[in-house]
Every structure is written in structure tokens, then in C-alpha cells.
């Protein structure tokens, strides 16, 4: 080796060191930026003073574990009459689980038909489903609000329209009206149908058709082929879709806020939003406790599923 190449290697090494240092500086800044609010909310949740103005990064004057949990006690026990946090938590879990499971099942039925049957108008229908999806159902919030309002009033309308049915209690319909979790679930399902049908059609397309053809030669009906063969095959990916739909539903705020008008029917996001906008400075600590309780499971789910999520995000982009 000559001295020239040696000196070039030294220069290369120095450059490399500089580059690496630069990379780490950027990483440290980015991680600090990303995590600062997270650390801050952690600190706020355990800070016994509970208000915005006196919060310090390390909670001060804490003598016991009991004191550390002041905000949690306030949120979960003492304040539940004014801010029914348990209701919100329950409502969110209820709405999100039912929405995600039903969405996956109903969309899977449509997707299977699109994937396996050939019929007149199939193409147009598929394009229509995709086109409709361009119109976000949030934009139609006025219309959705009025639909749910009318569904809720069915218990008044039916006895008026058909007096002989007066004896029956029709208030069952208000379970799907305005200010009801059932109505919100319907709205979410309707909005998610198009995109999920498309997504799952892709999954079904990836299952070779030979499988169902051989089953049908053996005399299986379409339903049996779907339910006993294809569905179990795509179940893992459907589970991921269901979990993502679950997270998305929990996070949804706009429609929930428009449709749910009553403190006890609020979901977590609507509740937490109203909690803190009532009195920002005073309820800061309790809001932080609620935020921590709501966000932690979702963050864990997200990080656990990050590869699938990244796959879903980039599917359209990195294909070709």
C-alpha cells in the first residue's frame, strides 16, 4: 500500500466520524422533540399539585405513593360524578370493538364476492365503491346528524303513523338515534365500508383460486368455501385490519363529538377534550392521568404492530 491511499483512508475515516456524529446529533434532537410532550404528560399525571402553573418535570414534595396517584384518584374515583371517565372508557371500548369486528365481517363478505364472482356490472360497482370513498363521511356530518336524529324519533313517528302499534314500546330505535352509541357505530361502519372492501379484496385475491375450486368440486357451497377455507387463511391479516380499525375508531373525534351530546354517552376522546376545555389550568393533572390511561395501550399496540402498519402505509407506494 502506498502512503497516498493510506492518507485517503484516514480522510475517509474522519469524514465518516463527522457524518456519524452529525447523524447522532440529529437523532438526539429528533428524539427529544418527539418525546418531550410524552415525558411532560407523564410528569403531569403523577404531579400531585395537579395544575398547569405549578407543574415541574420531577414532581416535588411527594412523600408517598399515595400522593403520586392523586390525579388518578381524582379522575377515577372522586370526580366520576362530574366527569364519568369510566363511562367514556367503556363507551370507547364498546364502540370500537363492535365497529371493528362488524366492519371486518361485513366488508369481508363484499370483498369475497368481488374477488371470487364474475358478474355483470362488477367493475362499475367496484369503481363506484372506490369513488364514493373519496367523499369523506366527515364532510357529510350535517346529513349524518339529521339521519340519526330522525332514526331516534322513530319511537314517536311509528305510533303517530300507525296508531294500532301504539301499545308496543318503540324506544328501541333510539338506541340507533342521535346521542347513542349504536348510531355512532352505524356511522363508522358506513364510512369504513368502501376502503375496507377494497383492502380485503386484495387479500382475497392473493389466495389462489385453485383452493376454492377444488373445494367446490368436492361439493362445498360458496358459503362453506368462504367460511371454512378462505376466511381462516386470511384471518391473521383480517385481525390486523380489525386492530387498526379498533385504534382508528378509538381515536375518532369529530363525528363522535357531533353525534354524542350527553356526558354519559361520550367516548374517551370527546370526554377528555371536554374535560380539559372546561378548565385547562385546574384539571391539567387529571387530564394528564386520563390521557396516559387512554394512550398507553394504543401506543403499545402500535409499536407492536409497526411492521404491519408500515407495510400498509407503503403498500401503494413501493409496489413498482
Amino acid at each position: 500500500m502506498s502512503s497516498r491511499t493510506e492518507s485517503r483512508m484516514v480522510v475517509g475515516g474522519r469524514e465518516k466520524l463527522l457524518e456519524l456524529t452529525l447523524r447522532w446529533v440529529v437523532i438526539v434532537i429528533a428524539v427529544a422533540f418527539a418525546l418531550f410532550p410524552v415525558v411532560w404528560i407523564f410528569s403531569a399525571a403523577f404531579n400531585p399539585t395537579g395544575n398547569l402553573a405549578n407543574q415541574t418535570l420531577i414532581p416535588q414534595g411527594v412523600d408517598s405513593l399515595d400522593e403520586l396517584l392523586t390525579n388518578f384518584r381524582g379522575l377515577l374515583v372522586e370526580d366520576v360524578d362530574i366527569h364519568p371517565f369510566w363511562n367514556w372508557l367503556g363507551n370507547s371500548i364498546f364502540v370500537a370493538s363492535i365497529t371493528s369486528v362488524l366492519t371486518v365481517l361485513v366488508a369481508a363478505l363484499s370483498a369475497y364476492a368481488f374477488s371470487r364472482f364474475r358478474f355483470a356490472g362488477r367493475r362499475n360497482l367496484l369503481v363506484l365503491v372506490l369513488l364514493i370513498q373519496v367523499f369523506p363521511n366527515m364532510l357529510a356530518m350535517v346529513a349524518l346528524f339529521l339521519i340519526l336524529q330522525q332514526i331516534g324519533k322513530l319511537s314517536e313517528y311509528i305510533p303517530q303513523a300507525l296508531p294500532f302499534l301504539e301499545g308496543i314500546n318503540w324506544s328501541f330505535f333510539s338506541l340507533f338515534g342521535l346521542n347513542s352509541l349504536g348510531g355512532l357505530i352505524l356511522v363508522y361502519m358506513g364510512g369504513a365500508m368502501g376502503i375496507n372492501t377494497w383492502l380485503m379484496k386484495g387479500f382475497f385475491d392473493s389466495v389462489p383460486r385453485d383452493i376454492d375450486e377444488s373445494a367446490q368440486v368436492d361439493g362445498a357451497s360458496h358459503w362453506q368455501t368462504f367460511w371454512m377455507l378462505i376466511f381462516p387463511l386470511v384471518r391473521p391479516i383480517l385481525a390486523v385490519v380489525a386492530i387498526l380499525s379498533f385504534i382508528g375508531t378509538i381515536n375518532e373525534f369529530v363525528l363522535a363529538r357531533v353525534m354524542l351530546r350527553d356526558k354519559t354517552t361520550w367516548t374517551l376522546m370527546v370526554g377528555l377534550y371536554n374535560y380539559v376545555s372546561d378548565n385547562f389550568a385546574r384539571d391539567w393533572g387529571k387530564f394528564a392521568a386520563g390521557a396516559l390511561i387512554s394512550a398507553t395501550p394504543i401506543v403499545i399496540l402500535y409499536i407492536a404492530l409497526q411492521d404491519q402498519i408500515v407495510g400498509g402505509l407503503t403498500q401503494g407506494a413501493v409496489k413498482g
Binding site: 429528533a30 428524539v31 418527539a34 418525546l35 410532550p37 410524552v38 411532560w40 404528560i41 403531569a44 398547569l52 378509538i250 381515536n251 373525534f253 374517551l268 376522546m269 377528555l272 377534550y273 380539559v276 385547562f280 391539567w284 387530564f287 394528564a288 390521557a291 387512554s294 394512550a295 394504543i298 401506543v299 399496540l301 402500535y302 409499536i303 409497526q306
Partner: peptide, 18 residues
């Protein structure tokens, strides 16, 4: 770094607001 993306948006915004 993806934690900000995973936290429900409403909560993050309110934390920032605080």
C-alpha cells in the same frame, strides 16, 4: 420516533395546548 404518530391525535393536541 413513531410514538407521536401512535398517540391519539386529540390527546396530543391538547397536551401541546397545555
Amino acid at each position: 420516533l413513531i410514538i407521536p404518530y401512535a398517540i391519539p391525535g386529540v390527546i396530543s393536541i391538547l397536551v401541546w395546548k397545555g
